[in-house]
């Protein structure tokens, strides 16, 4: 019944350009592994379900295409979309969802060019692993579980997180704002060229390792031991320091970009 309702909602939403949603129960799930090549927005919600929706903020184009969409919809009547990457089991959303033990794999079956962003609402404590492919970006807020993200050119943005965080991008900018810092296991943030901007609470206990050929800017008090010997061939510089007598390891590495480490 619920499914039919959602399906109805989905069908009507194409015409009226309303927000469409797909829900999936997360009982027994500890971790979500998400793959999609688009702009991914993840929000922590007061929910026990995964709530998936399109996040095209460009509603104008949609309205203009409304007529076209309707024609397309008529064409699709009685047919089902099939994809090379797996079976769509999200009522036409174009995602494949599979459960393996306590891990849920959510894989986008549509290509980057067909998506204009997706939005997921997940329980606050969920562990998340998200990969935005070649072109996608990731933005998430409010999670207290472990977060793993990877992008290529897209930006990585996190707010109100606690870690453990493992983030990597080649070209995208990274901005991470910690609420507090979980001492469970290491935090690693790395980028090849772009700048990394990290904000930590003033009382964070951590062993920090910063490495870049760019410049590090911070308002934390760093006690930097002066090292002699070993000429630095590659021009790479490492700064090690303890914050508040030390704690969890935090690695921040950018090959060429600047590192901004802010005290809040």
């Amino acid at each position: 019944m619920k499914k039919i309702l959602i399906l109805l909602l989905f069908v009507t939403s194409i015409v009226s350009a309303q927000k469409k949603e797909f829900k999936y129960s997360l009982s027994g799930i500890k971790k979500i592994v998400l793959e999609s090549g688009t702009r991914i927005v993840l929000t922590a919600g007061n929910t026990t379900e995964l709530v998936l929706s399109d996040n095209a903020n460009n509603h104008k184009t949609y309205e203009r295409d409304e007529h076209k969409e309707k024609l397309k919809e008529d064409k699709r009547k009685g047919l089902t979309a099939i994809y090379p990457g797996g079976k769509d089991n999200t009522d036409g959303f174009g995602f494949s969802i599979t459960k393996e033990g306590n891990v849920l794999y959510v894989t986008d079956l549509k290509s980057t060019y067909q998506r204009h962003g997706i939005k997921l609402v997940l329980p606050k404590t969920m562990n998340i692993s998200a990969n935005a492919g070649t072109l996608g970006s990731i933005s998430l807020e409010g999670f207290t579980g472990e977060v793993e993200v990877a992008t290529n050119v897209g930006r990585i943005e996190m707010k109100n997180v606690t870690g453990p965080i493992t983030a990597n991008t080649s070209v995208g900018k990274i901005d991470i704002d910690f609420d507090k810092v979980s001492q469970t296991s290491p935090i690693t943030i790395s980028s090849s060229v772009s700048e990394i901007d990290v904000a930590l609470p003033a009382d964070t206990k951590a062993d920090i390792e910063l490495r870049t050929q760019g410049t590090v800017y911070t308002n934390f008090d760093f006690d930097i031991p002066t090292k002699k010997g070993m000429p630095n061939v590659s021009g790479r510089k490492t700064i090690n320091s303890k914050l508040n007598n030390g704690g969890v390891k935090i690695y921040i590495k950018s090959s060429m970009g600047n590192i901004y480490l802010r005290k809040k």
Partner: peptide, 12 residues
């Protein structure tokens, strides 16, 4: 381990 952060801990 399935957690990347834990694997990094182990590697270090």
């Amino acid at each position: 381990n399935t957690s990347a952060s834990k694997r990094i801990l182990a590697v270090t």
